[in-house]
Design a protein around this nucleic acid. Sequence first.
DNA 1: AAGAATCATGTAAAGGTTTACATAGAGGCA
DNA 2: TGCCTCTATGTAAACCTTTACATGATTCTT
Lengths: 379, 379
Amino acid sequence: MYNVHAIGVARFKGSAKRLAPRWVSKPDTRPRGAERSVQHQKLATIEDVAALAGVSIATVSRAINEPTKVADETRRKVTEAVAKTGYTTNAMARSLRMRRSNMILILAPDVGDPNFSNILVGLETEASKRGYGVLIGNTQNDPARETDYLRFISSNQADGLILFTGHLPYGFGHEGGEARLPPMVAVNEPVANAEVPFVGVDNFEGSRVATEHLISQGHRRIAFIGHSTSKAINMLREKGYRAALQAARIEVDPRMILAGDGTTESGRAAAEHMFVRDVLPSAFLCVNDATALGVIISLNTRKYDLPRDFSIMGFDDISFASFVTPALTTMKQPRLKIGEKAMDLLLALLEGKRPAQPEVLLRAELIVRNSVSRPGHER
Amino acid sequence: MYNVHAIGVARFKGSAKRLAPRWVSKPDTRPRGAERSVQHQKLATIEDVAALAGVSIATVSRAINEPTKVADETRRKVTEAVAKTGYTTNAMARSLRMRRSNMILILAPDVGDPNFSNILVGLETEASKRGYGVLIGNTQNDPARETDYLRFISSNQADGLILFTGHLPYGFGHEGGEARLPPMVAVNEPVANAEVPFVGVDNFEGSRVATEHLISQGHRRIAFIGHSTSKAINMLREKGYRAALQAARIEVDPRMILAGDGTTESGRAAAEHMFVRDVLPSAFLCVNDATALGVIISLNTRKYDLPRDFSIMGFDDISFASFVTPALTTMKQPRLKIGEKAMDLLLALLEGKRPAQPEVLLRAELIVRNSVSRPGHER
DNA sequence: AAGAATCATGTAAAGGTTTACATAGAGGCA
DNA sequence: TGCCTCTATGTAAACCTTTACATGATTCTT
């Protein structure tokens, strides 16, 4: 409510004020057009450059965008005029004409999430490298905000979309049947019920490797914390866990598999539950680092000596993983790469290429720290 | 001369041609233009809406932007037509005409930095609330990238600038003397040698409160880790430390003040140094949490029992502060608020208001965890 | 009842590009 | 020489808005 009010007032005031005396004046008085620009001095346009170089605006445009198509001498004159006037192409005019903005919209539930931020850096780096800018939309999983951000796409302010949310923005496909989706790529979480290319970590393989690591250290009784019937990530990681056990001919004990939604609290609760039931593993394979932290808290509280008494393994390698005691052995998500690859894929899409594969899976890297040791005989 | 000629020709030809092609049909087969748009279907324009509503495009524009200025009945027809066509204002055309993009550029050395990300969320939230979008520029402190991002400002693609970098983007003010700066606000770190409004935490006051907290717990021998002669933040925090000691009539012992650049390693090194010299405090006031972590690592390695043997205090409340053992007592930066306030200030600037104060300082909040206890007699 | 003021709407210009098409000059070739 | 091809450049349209100004219809004033 406050929002609406604020916006209303702002807009009204803005338009009412338009005529009022401009407060930013350029040093030299320039009557034409001066009354309009609220913030900047009048910028040089392509016409100014053309006049100075003694050519037409078309030639200037070509000299800038297709240098080979103009005579050397002309190009020289234009370059010089550009430098002298300080001309920069007006991006708005260009976008309007070309019908593309060279902007990518990133829709994430929480840009502050440490899991996201490095992907963000990767996205930005690759985009910038290719001449694109990125625009962020922090939706907080609020449908209204998701819908709101669609205007960036529908108003041509962004050419493509990166989705962290795991679902299509609320408001798509509402107009009777399959509305045409803009070019987009999902990251972090695949989009359910829609064919959206996805770039992420190979959860199955990563979890398999993690489990193998525990097995290689001699563990046979390995608990999996984070069973879920709804979360795709959890399901894949559990699958990898089962595959590794099976490959090592270790029977899967259902009592060793505990539910968890990936929060620290769920990890703590699961560990406590194990003690209550008194069915104890020698190692905990946690669906992610947050869960592992919960397990560690529970074990620390019970005054166990880690990792002597129990081994713990996480997944993700989030920032605190190296600071917790014991420092967490985990699988590192190649976040930077995920971002870069996702942007690369999106830009390819924008250039009209159909993606080779619907999803790109990158390998997680095993990071060995102090939370895993050999079991049993050392107890 | 060239202009005059061009205009003459244009007018003649234009009016002659205007009648002929006038692409009358709009519904189905649209051969023209189809070959151009690589990505989107043709979007509805204001003309489509106008045609459907049976009014002029000017009226449509007014119905949308200044609803009170059109008759009720007309507004109804327009609204209906908008809904039917799915019309969205083309942001590029609008920006071109209005000479403002309603976009804010955020320049940060590393968007992935956990210290930044929550400020980012605050910035985005406030911007979005006020109808602005945010665009991120990750500079990695690379002058080339900083310069590169200036085009967003100079090409009208962004109306204002938020600076995390602590310095003006490389490339400003290069054109002989004081180039006019675009509206901008610094955050996280004030900008040296330039009058840029700043929003941040009150480092002096926060540090004073932190020191007071230690004093109130009975500490008299308090070390300050993080002395610096160059970093403004460090200097302010040291000042707060000194002020608190002075107010409590505790003499400042120079041996209790150790240099540090704010990294974890510098914290570890400083603590080690104290042991080497064997001048020990009962509490460590660290310039930030990263430094505190270094101190904790050093003390843990030496097998001290924390916080019984030593108390440690940080500053910032970065994400791992609560996970480290012992959980860190620290001063929390109101990051979300900083972001919101900074954006608020910038938007005010854009509306032509001069800022009341050149800097806005927000209070840090004392977060009590487990790393501080009463000294001495409990040892 | 005539003129003034107000209101709702329309017309057209302007904002700064890119690019299809036109044009003019130069060079190649029969 | 006459014709064709190339190359370099210019002309003007199109991209889609917002808004100053004009217009015609109402209502208000005196």
